[in-house]
Amino acid sequence: MLLEIRDLRVKYGNIEALHGISFHVEKGEIVTLIGANGAGKTTTLHSIMRLPPPEAPKVLSGDILFEGMSLLSTEPHDVVRKLHVALVPEGRHIFGNLTVMENLTLATYARKDGASAISADLDRVFDLFPRLAERRNQRSESLSGGEQQMLALGRALMSKCQTLLLDEPSMGLSPLLMYEMFRTLKRLNEQGLTILLIEQNARLALRFAHRGYVLDTGEIVASGSSAELAADPAVKKAYLGG
């Protein structure tokens, strides 16, 4: 198992946000966590990334295992550079005061595999997102929302990730851009990228993912293959609009 969340209870601020959830992600899979606002989806991803205080969710009990090893005492930058897990956070969090190129360069900060591997990855990112290549010397806060999302994804790829956590990637994108991005993600998955996706747009998420879990106020209430979940009457009613 690549990633296993085992009976995880987490406090975020003063409230218990996750009440003992368990799920797993196999290598090469696309897994989605669907659920309403405030269900604890983002908290789950932040817990996996081991984000530092004060943003960090505090693990009360349970464990997060990556290839069988507990992540609980791992530093967030080591999750990225040693385990090759990346998070594209909700709201993108690109560095607006830096250029597109500088944002992408920064993501290679901890890479030790040499300039030629890095420039090959840069070519790949520019190949996936030609718009970024056009705007490489532009300050990234001047990009459109869709372009910023591409940059956030490109940045994750530049960190040489093999496991990608995506937090609401469709937010603020036009339908056209959204489908384009999901097609790109599908292609990356076929090339071996493991994806854990959080989406409010459950319909879209279930069409894209192999398997899914439904998170409801800190508890997993349903799980199964995407087809099973999409056919489940309760899921249909609550998340797919009937």
Binding site: P89, L98, T105, Y109, R155, S159
Partner: peptide, 24 residues
Amino acid sequence: TKIGMAMQAISYDRFAVPLMGIPT
């Protein structure tokens, strides 16, 4: 330099810095 860019990045958005594999 990369470390200089990291300094600028922290000033803009400290949350995202460790996500780049950078020890803040």
